[in-house]
Amino acid sequence: MESLTAILIGVLTAAAVYMMLARNIMRFMFGLILLSNAVNLTIFTAGRMTKGEPALVPYGQDAPLTDIGNALPQALVLTAIVIGFGLLAFLLALVFEAYRRLHVVDTDAMRHAEPKEDTTK
């Protein structure tokens, strides 16, 4: 199972890098989303994929009765997903606003902060 997800992570990362190399900022963003999913899967896989019950202790017991899945990577991934979601939503808003105001999605054409040197001077 781990090797299968490892391959999946590799494919996702490759696709993400391919998309992030594009000049179009929207493509870059989609690449980033893929990469963020690949990273989340990495954490999940790194915690070992074991079969087991949810990590809940039944009422009145001190310890779970059966084998439980590793809960920590799940908690980490949940946190990472939430944070990633927030950041990507922010990025989307930013890209959208930039498109509205600058009328470009091509990163090469975005030169407002770093204007080209005036070589005629």
Binding site: M20, I25, F28, M29, L32, L35, S36, L87, L88, F90, L91, L94, V95, E97, A98, R101, L102, T107, M110, R111, H112, A113
Partner: peptide, 16 residues
């Protein structure tokens, strides 16, 4: 406009 432009570069690279 400057800030939006700068913001995109800053945000994108820091996210990576």
């Amino acid at each position: 406009k400057e800030r939006l432009d700068a913001g995109i570069k800053y945000v994108a690279l820091n996210l990576v």
